[in-house]
Design a binder for these strands. Structure first.
Lengths: 168, 168
DNA sequence: CCCAACTAATTGAGAGTTGTACTACTCTGG
DNA sequence: CCAGAGTAGTACAACTCTCAATTAGTTGGG
């Protein structure tokens, strides 16, 4: 979403010059590509497995954790989701029996979310279709080098959160 | 969102083998990076300009169109949004005076959305901050080559929609 | 021991998004 | 010129996400 130069002729701020024509082109390619990819993967998962992307991601993270269990806060951070959002998502999933919540023994305030056997089964069932979609829409469309470059660039972006409001 | 191998030891489907360890790493970098970027840009726009990313994008597209006007369907397609979603977004924006809708003279079924002067002013006001954020979170974190590679890869992804259900 | 300050997670209300069904209009062929 | 097929946009309802307020638990100083 979003582009940059609102229209030809509009002056830019001194500390925020418009992107160059090339840069704009890449940026827009990113926006469109990301939108389509999310669209396509979400649709596939929803259709074939009845899961949203968020739910799938929750399950993957839990499946990789020791005891298939993580603290809610850890899970939220690793997914880049708000606490509130995760609470709602997990609550929905718990109603469907995909995950279970239990008080954390170490810290009375904490809650552990665990992937149930049913949840694990659902994940195992959903994964092949999802992988197929990731290949179809992403991996197979790129050379190894391109894919590597994409990964590297995106890793650079997710680096230090740097939530400084401005240049402060 | 989403990763790929649900857990070590789970067998993959013949036609959808798990990604290699490296591929998984890139894919995950993509997911996290994309989530953070969207997060950061959306927050900045909301805070500084009172606009959502979707709204900003609508305004950019309109600002670039002849007469600052586009058919609803064209707009929806170019944004990769559902018709329904666009209708709601534009309705909200119309209430705030950012856009106007008018019957399309050429085709009685169609509706033209036009960016109003107020909308244009809002876009011009919002753009510098947005560009600054795009630079801070994306452009400045990448070398020119990296950014170019990112753009190229994403362009390849957004190519032919190829909405074939499988390999069909 | 108790209170204040802090952290973890949840809750509820409100806004946004989506799918489905429906209306209005256009176009083609009889 | 009218019927039927097709297209564009909207309305409603169900669901998801965000923000602000709330509950529960921990920690450290007096």
């Amino acid at each position: 979403m979003t582009v940059t130069a609102p229209s030809p002729g509009v002056p830019s701020a001194d500390d925020a010059p418009w992107l160059t024509a090339e840069q704009q082109q890449w940026w827009r390619a990113y926006l469109t590509g990301a939108a389509r990819l999310t669209e396509a993967l979400g649709r596939q998962l929803e259709r074939d497995a009845g899961l949203s992307l968020s739910e799938y991601e929750v399950m993957v993270r839990l499946s990789e954790a020791p005891d298939r269990t993580l603290r809610m806060a850890e899970l939220a951070d690793s997914l880049v989701h708000s606490r509130s959002r995760l609470t709602h998502t997990v609550a929905r999933m718990e109603r469907r029996g995909l995950v279970a919540r239990r008080a954390c023994p170490a810290d009375g305030r904490g809650i552990n979310a665990t992937l149930t056997d049913a949840g694990m089964a659902a994940l195992v069932a959903a994964a092949p279709g999802h992988v197929r979609a990731v290949r179809e829409h992403l991996v197979d469309r790129l050379s190894d080098d391109e894919f590597r470059a994409l990964g590297r660039a995106m890793a650079a972006i997710s680096g230090p959160t740097a939530d400084a409001t401005a240049s402060a």
